[in-house]
Design a protein around this nucleic acid. Sequence first.
DNA 1: GAAATATGAATGAACG
DNA 2: CGTTCATTCATATTTC
Lengths: 173, 173
Amino acid sequence: TFGHKMTGRQRWTPTPLQLQTLERIFDQGIGTPSKQKIKDITEELSQHGQIAEQNVYNWFQNRRARSKRKQPGGSSKNNNGESEVETETETLNEKRKMPESLLVLPDGNNNNGIGTTSATSPRPEDLCFQSPEMSSDLHLLGVLSNPRDEDLVGKMGLSESYNLYDHVEDYGM
Amino acid sequence: TFGHKMTGRQRWTPTPLQLQTLERIFDQGIGTPSKQKIKDITEELSQHGQIAEQNVYNWFQNRRARSKRKQPGGSSKNNNGESEVETETETLNEKRKMPESLLVLPDGNNNNGIGTTSATSPRPEDLCFQSPEMSSDLHLLGVLSNPRDEDLVGKMGLSESYNLYDHVEDYGM
DNA sequence: GAAATATGAATGAACG
DNA sequence: CGTTCATTCATATTTC
């Protein structure tokens, strides 16, 4: 049995109208709207559904980051072994996924989704680690295998001579 | 002129203990600790996981910068009384992502006598839960001569939980 | 239903 | 110090 608080506000899902507007603005050129712009956009989009400035900001950030990452993948990169699962070429091809059947998302508060799919939530209240399945970088940091002369502490380590941030001013003196 | 930007190194992830300590220090009212404090804090946090002074510095900078965007003024420009389905009753609900395994130096022949008794083993208490007692010489980096009080958080002694911030702090704008 | 994918959100690090 | 980038995590959505 479940159905505890399950609080956690579900993440904002842009309505088609909002998305359309966002895409249009994004297409207009500026990839990083200023705060004022964000506010303006947010206010505008508020007409079509609940939205916050942070949502807009995040959206632009994600959009930009995502668009940039897809672009340089055209050349040969995949040589062997690892398979690049992320192979979506929607750089200049605006291929927004559109449900062909149901898309009736009333603008307003589409805060549905309270009922999670199932007990697939790998995060009990007592659990600290979320999902070790998708952990990636930590493996590299692991110490359990391949104790090579990895100088990973050379930069992040706590060396006494930490002049790595030489270009940085004396942080807060 | 340089171009070295974290050559693929995984970014540091604070352990709960480290985070807790950092938050506490931050709550004490110091905006940006001095270099000396940074060193001190780093040394302290090193007991709980790999960390560098740069990390501490960055953390404070980010923290401060992000805490700034919370409550601009007394007049709430956001009278958007949308349907907030959730009440703020997530005091005991930890929502932050949990760090995975922390690395330690391979115990080959690199033994520095910093009291690394068995620090080469990922202690669960560092990764997950830990005793409610604060570790150690944190008092020495307690309140110092910089009563920066720009934040609104200061419920010391009231709440046992340290998760004072939500996810809606700001969007790093 | 579970896996795969899409994408919003969080945050450490870098830049100006 | 403010802002932006890059990476990752979490969750919604789609697919098998």
